[in-house]
């Protein structure tokens, strides 16, 4: 009970401090409200119309050390199997079958889908509503993600619109944006990949039907 009381008290006091500060701010000489800006979209880098979104996506992701593999319509699963064979990976965890933590720590690769891609940055978007386990994209040393070409969006703005779904109550509880392998430069600013997350990120881009 005491705790609850303190909580309300802290909340009320902070909000009160803010209101007092703002009252003083509005009384300051030369005060005027800034223009309403929220919701207005500015500073969106143009996406060249002449280049296909998938090519921009590929270039962006490769520039940060990710790998992109293209395949034909309906060939995604086969392409994943071939890639895993090529990488000589035997133990694999899938996002649709959430593995236990011990298993997750043992597997060599994690396979998931990606709900969207973002051409501007080479980012893939994974949502908790679709990918039961996002840890498969984080804990194993290799992450392979299947992305459909027609889910590649031009920029961050459109990706935010897609994940927002018009109503916050419908949003996935955890949305993860991934751009390349895990990296750090905390020691002498020397780039090292795979510090906590995967050393390799492979995106299988499946052509639309």
């Amino acid at each position: 009970m005491v705790e609850g009381f303190l909580m309300t008290e802290a909340r009320a006091e902070i909000l009160n401090r803010i209101r007092m500060g703002l009252t003083a701010a509005r009384a300051e000489e030369g005060f005027c409200y800034p223009a309403e800006v929220s919701g207005e979209q500015v500073g969106i880098p143009p996406i060249p119309q002449s280049t296909a979104l998938v090519d921009i996506f590929t270039e962006s992701l490769e520039s940060v050390g990710g790998f992109v593999h293209r395949c034909g319509p309906g060939e995604g699963d086969v392409a994943i199997q071939e890639l895993l064979k090529e990488l000589q990976v035997e133990r694999v965890a899938h996002s649709g079958v959430p593995p236990g933590l011990e298993e997750l720590l043992q597997v060599e690769a994690g396979v998931s889908s990606a709900q969207w891609g973002i051409a501007e940055t080479g980012t893939i978007v994974l949502t908790s509503d679709e990918e039961q386990s996002r840890l498969v994209s984080l804990v194993p040393p290799i992450h392979v993600a299947l992305l459909r070409e027609d889910n590649v969006l031009p920029n961050l703005d459109e990706a935010l619109v897609e994940v927002y779904r018009d109503n916050p109550a419908d949003m996935s509880r955890a949305i993860t944006w991934i751009t390349g392998p895990s990296r750090t430069a905390d020691i002498e600013l020397t780039l090292v990949v795979g510090v906590h997350g995967p050393r390799q990120l492979h995106v299988i881009l499946e052509a639309a039907q």
């Binding site: 962006s60 940060v64 501007e120 940055t121 980012t123 961050l156 994940v163 916050p168 949003m171 996935s172 509880r173 955890a174 949305i175 993860t176 944006w177 991934i178 751009t179 390349g180 392998p181 895990s182 990296r183 997350g197």
Partner: peptide, 12 residues
């Protein structure tokens, strides 16, 4: 960087 490697958007 154009974007950091990971963005976690946590809603609820």
């Amino acid at each position: 960087q154009k974007i950091t490697t990971y963005q976690s958007i946590l809603t609820g």
